[in-house]
Simulated scan of single mutants.
Amino acid sequence: MKKVLHFLHLWFGIGSGIIVFILAVTGCIYAFQLEIQDATQSFRFVEPQKKAFLSPSEFRVIAEKALPNKKIHSVQYADNKTAVVITFFNFDPEYYYLMFANPYTGEIQETRNMDSDFFRFILLGHYYLWLPPTIGQPIAASATLIFVFMLISGLVLWWPKNKAALKQRFKVKWNAQWRRKNYDLHNVLGFYSIPIALIIACTGLIMGFQWFSKSVYWATSGGQTMTQFYEPESKGKPVLDKNTPAIDFLWKKTIAENPTAQTIEMHYPETAKSTIAAVTNPIAGTYYKADYIYYDQYSLKPVPVTHNFGRYHDKITLANKIMRMNYDIHIGAIVGLPGKILAFIISFITASLPVTGFIIWWGRRKKSKKPKVKMGVKKEMVKN
């Protein structure tokens, strides 16, 4: 059994190693994206003022004047020290812009084409390996699935035959030769990283494979089928006069109903049938507790949805919570900064495993190619 596992562990590792390395390194870099951006991008912040914020309709006029012929998607408000973030997004033709504006004056502090943003580049590498999504995404997900097998098979191969050998498996022998140290780094670090690495990999698979996501939901919901995300529609009749923008009315309503929300994001209706979405988040930097409320843009009444992205407390079942928490678990944000640090460390170890594993294989390969010395010749060499 171990011989078979060793063979599969070796060749699956060689086949997927470079992809796992890319996924792990990009994961390391992206782990502290928010913290790095806050520390290096001053345009994300403003001086607090004793003034009211501009409304979503006012920001729409300002933003569309600054970036004409682009479709505005949403505007996000935070606290009195943070710039408003206006998003322009479209699939065909594809573009993605973020505009940072002063919430009190509407002054645009920065407009970023996200196609040239460093962290966007890293994220596309992590998701798609910088390939077209239809090609890169299944390759990345398949490599992640192989990595799960590598972790499990690695544990079986690591497991010692007796108690005497067990003591040597938990620590790196730093005073040994470099090949032994490399071997220990691969095995010992791999062993310690298994629990968290499995969690990171499995949460990645939920995002990477629909069949995996549906299977997890089915297993944790007692056999129910997960409802896929869909856009609800507006079907009501106007209740406001033309001088009162519906999105402004709903924005004020959302603020009044969610006084403790750390961010409020209003989504502009894109078509005559679209709803106005209000997203309130009680914990900035995470996503799982956010409330998504869809309003009919004419009647201003909430439009109920059956998928998982509605009100958080309306979808409190175990299966829905797992789906909600999945991304925050994947990046470690579910437990704050300590979780991100842990995710960074495990991702760094994960990136090292294909490297140390390849060195082990290459060293054994070179060793096996050395010419064997016959016994008689060896004796003659000893005499001389």
Rank of each mutant, 00 (worst) to 15 (best):
G223H: 01
P133F: 14
I293F: 03
C202I: 11
K369M: 15
L67G: 01
K81C: 02
F12G: 15
A290I: 00
M1S: 13
N113K: 08
L300H: 07
A52I: 06
T203Y: 05
N320S: 10
V75D: 04
T350W: 04
E58G: 06
E265P: 12
L54V: 06
P259W: 11
N326M: 01
H126I: 02
K167H: 09
K367I: 02
G310H: 10
I108A: 09
S16H: 00
F53D: 06
L337H: 07
K81G: 01
N384K: 15
I334L: 15
N182F: 02
A66F: 08
E233R: 13
V156Y: 05
I14F: 03
Q168H: 14
E110T: 04
K171H: 15
F229A: 11
S221A: 04
I331H: 10
F88V: 08
K70F: 13
I19R: 01
R60K: 14
P56T: 05
P195D: 07
N258G: 02
E64F: 06
P103I: 05
R60Q: 14
T225H: 13
E110I: 03
K289V: 03
K181H: 08
V279W: 09
G13K: 01
A246N: 09
M375G: 10
K237A: 11
Y192Q: 09
G27D: 08
F348G: 08
K173A: 13
W362Q: 14
R324P: 10
V305P: 06
S153H: 00
N175S: 15
N69F: 12
I122C: 10
I14P: 01
A31C: 10
L205N: 02
Y128M: 06
T144K: 00
I122H: 10
W11D: 00
I349Q: 03
A63E: 04
H73L: 12
P259N: 12
N281G: 07
Q37G: 11
P259D: 11
D291I: 08
S347T: 07
P302Y: 08
I146F: 13
I86S: 05
S347Q: 08
I334N: 13
H330T: 07
I146G: 02
T317Y: 05
F91D: 13
Q41N: 14
P269K: 07
K242Y: 11
V239C: 03
L23R: 04
F43Y: 15
V335Q: 06
S213K: 13
V279G: 07
A143L: 01
I247G: 02
G190K: 01
G310Y: 12
K253I: 02
G376R: 12
F118Q: 05
I19V: 15
L337W: 10
F12E: 05
L189F: 11
H186L: 07
A24P: 00
I146Y: 02
K366V: 04
L300K: 07
D92G: 04
Q297F: 08
Q137N: 10
T280H: 09
K367A: 14
K161Q: 13
Q228Y: 09
F229Y: 14
P338A: 01
A246M: 00
E107Y: 03
P93F: 12
